[in-house]
Nucleic acid binder design. Structure first.
Lengths: 226, 226
DNA sequence: CCATACATGGCATCTAGTGTCATCATACGG
DNA sequence: CCGTATGATGACACTAGATGCCATGTATGG
């Protein structure tokens, strides 16, 4: 990491790293496999840990399990800023490393998708799981990036949990519903009469009373339902 | 593509491709830049088209714009199955190509995020945009993958539109709401009194009347507001 | 003390990718 | 019609990541 930060990623050869690490070039390749893997070595261990965590988790609340898994990843990032922060700078500068980082997060996303979809690869449940996994990853990266830009600030655990709650709110509720045989339905703040199922989303101030919410929903539903 | 499919990606050298293409190795590199770019050459053009589309689009309904952009990408995939289908097989088999493909879709996702977030990189609107972009990409890939597995079937345009409507339903509604100054809020099928804003999601049969929906929501809201 | 298994290092080699220069075709101005 | 400038192409050399092969330690077990 020191060599990469000083001379740049491309300019640092495997010979340089081998000399600095006190081992031969050949052994370096044997340990890490490739130059990129040197930077993301511990990431593989973390991924395996997360996969084992998902396998061992009870399946009563998959969304909460995935949220915890994402929290584990976040935890590992903020636990060792001396590695993750300079690596973040490197990754932003070198396109090759950026692609590699994206591929890493895609592996988490795929694992989350499989877990949320419960092995299904087609149908409503699979789609919901994939979209939910993508949203969880997006929320994780959103908060993580903001912290990586200012790592001297306290770790934004609250914003992390809020972001997770935000993205798992609507889709998570859909995942808990029993599966629908065929024919998807969409629609925001309203209904779709042509489909077998409809989704209603309401956003309102927390201070609003239940009666206010109900009256707003009633007016949004329009005249046909009263 | 023929060489890659016959001998495999790794086993096909740039010399082989140059000989088959009737040009020198050096010219091959000049045209495509790298071995991977040979496979994803037209993809770059498509991405630029999508970016120009987003730039030129009116910003009255960003969600619909992004949905159309995703539709454009899907359209280009299904338009030339003689390229995309064997490439899909290659991408699945070669990890290096898989990472590249993921990086390509990540570029779309980033473009969608920027567009939906309207340049913001922090805060609720940015997070919503990122999660929505991630969900749109996930839905696109979900339907696209299913078609790539059975390209002889008719193009599942209906499932594509349904999947898009599904993932843009709830989050899209949140994006249309005016931004909240500070403090995110979450919560599914209920409210979170500690936050400034709450989200309510209801899933119900399309055949249900408005009164039924209202009564179910009333009972879900609990005693304090009903 | 010996034998086997394993890690390490040195070496050769392959291949992607880049810099450099010569060559050739084409277009343009006199 | 000719000389010239420009751009594409090709040949060559070189760097560096990555792999295979073999020799040399080094520890473990009988």
């Amino acid at each position: 990491m020191r060599l990469f930060s000083e001379a740049g990623y491309e300019a640092t050869t495997m010979d340089d790293i081998a000399a600095a690490a006190g081992m031969s070039r050949r052994s370096l390749f044997r340990r890490f496999g490739s130059k990129e893997d040197i930077l993301f070595a511990e990431h593989d261990d973390l991924f395996e840990t997360v996969e084992r965590f998902l396998e061992a988790a009870p399946d009563d609340d998959p969304v909460a399990t995935v949220r915890s898994a994402a929290r584990m990843v976040f935890q590992e990032y903020v636990r060792s800023p001396e590695i993750t922060v300079p690596r973040f700078r490197l990754v932003r500068a070198v396109p090759r490393l950026r692609d590699r980082e994206i591929a890493m997060t895609a592996r988490y996303q795929a694992a989350f998708s499989r877990f949320l979809g419960r092995g299904e690869t087609a149908g409503r449940r699979a789609l919901t799981g994939e979209a939910l996994a993508a949203s969880v990853i997006a929320a994780h990266n959103h908060v993580l990036r903001s912290w990586l830009h200012a790592p001297q600030e306290p770790v934004p655990w609250r914003r992390f949990d809020e972001a997770m709650a935000f993205v798992t709110g609507s889709l998570g509720a859909l995942l808990r519903e029993p599966p629908v045989p065929e024919g998807d339905a969409g629609g925001a703040g309203g209904r779709d009469a042509a489909a077998q199922e409809s989704v209603l989303v309401a956003v309102y101030p927390a201070a609003a009373s239940g009666a206010d919410v109900l009256s707003r929903i009633r007016s949004a539903l329009g005249p046909e339902g009263g």
